[in-house]
């Protein structure tokens, strides 16, 4: 029978050392200088450490994109799958191995365009998976084409005179599809990001975290957003943390991007439901 108890834990009280969680042999990593995905990676590792999850019990399932390459650097059970499908792969893995902590790392194109269907169904099904969507508003890996989160007027290699399509609000989408935990954080607020991911990991059920990341090399340069430091500093003008959500707007600082936790609700977790249902069919328990 399927057992959902993890076999080991790590010492979460020991100080966090990212080198212990990385495959150092895989270094140097391939990310461009200043790319936000590296900050997300570190925040994820720190959060995993804080939650006391052991490497052997951690499975990181990635899609295809710069975001998808993040997993390969983690010293855990890592799967680099196909474009848009990591949530579907993770669903099979988590159902087969409920003892594992399953984290999906995906991109805005991976998760919202080609994989959009899997996102809404993973949120609806509510299997215990933590999904990190690294949103850099562009297809980084393929050279900077527009994605479903590319803001209007932004220049990309497929919107050379500015994007015109409306964008997805990924958090609203995940919440509407039924996710029990939904949150967003910018890479500028690395400690807050770590805390948010840790909360998502502890949440039982599908947890969706949108990480606002920067594609410095392609998106930043094309749109004259400055170097990596300028890009990351400008996140401050965008974000509006939970505690300031009702504060008045400041001139020249739109702060239009809510961050923090949007949804946190206890819903029946799919794997538990499925196993209870199966036990009832076998006559082991009364439904």
């Amino acid at each position: 029978m399927l057992d959902a108890t993890p076999k080991t834990t790590c010492d979460q009280k020991a100080p966090f050392d990212p080198r212990e969680w990385l495959r150092l042999a895989a270094m140097p990593h391939f990310m461009c200088p200043g790319c936000g995905h590296g900050i997300a990676l570190r925040a994820l590792l720190a959060a995993v450490h804080d939650c006391g999850i052991a490497k052997d019990d951690l499975a990181v399932v990635c899609g295809i994109g710069c975001s998808g390459r993040v997993g390969g650097y983690i010293d855990a059970n890592t799967m680099h799958t196909t474009h848009g499908r990591p949530l579907a792969f993770a669903t099979g893995l988590k159902l087969a191995r409920p003892d594992l902590t399953v984290v999906v790392v995906t991109g805005d194109g991976d998760c919202l365009a080609i994989g959009g269907n899997h996102l809404i169904h993973a949120a609806r099904r509510n299997l215990d998976i933590t999904c990190l969507m690294l949103n850099n508003e562009v297809y980084g890996m393929t050279g900077g084409q527009a994605s479903p989160t590319t803001a209007a007027t932004r220049v990309t290699s497929t919107t050379q005179s500015g994007a015109i399509e409306p964008t997805f609000d990924a958090c609203a989408l995940a919440a509407a599809a039924g996710a029990g935990f939904v949150g967003r954080e910018v890479t500028r607020q690395a400690p807050a990001l770590k805390t948010l991911i840790a909360r998502a990991l502890r949440h039982k059920g599908f947890a969706f975290v949108e990480v606002m990341s920067d594609c410095t090399e392609i998106y930043g340069r094309k749109n004259d957003l400055g170097e990596a430091p300028e890009m990351i500093l400008s996140q401050k003008a965008d974000m509006r943390p939970e505690q300031h959500r009702d504060a008045p707007d400041q001139p020249f600082r739109p702060n239009a991007l809510p961050t923090g936790v949007f949804v946190e609700r206890d819903l029946p977790e799919y794997g538990e439901r499925l196993r209870a249902h199966a036990a009832a069919i076998r006559g082991e328990i009364t439904p």
Binding site: M79, R85, T91, G92, K94, A96, R97, H118
Partner: peptide
């Protein structure tokens, strides 16, 4: 697409 992906995920799980 999701079906075969889930099958492969379960297979990788053992």
């Amino acid at each position: 697409i999701a079906s075969i992906a889930a099958v492969i995920g379960a297979s990788l799980g053992g």
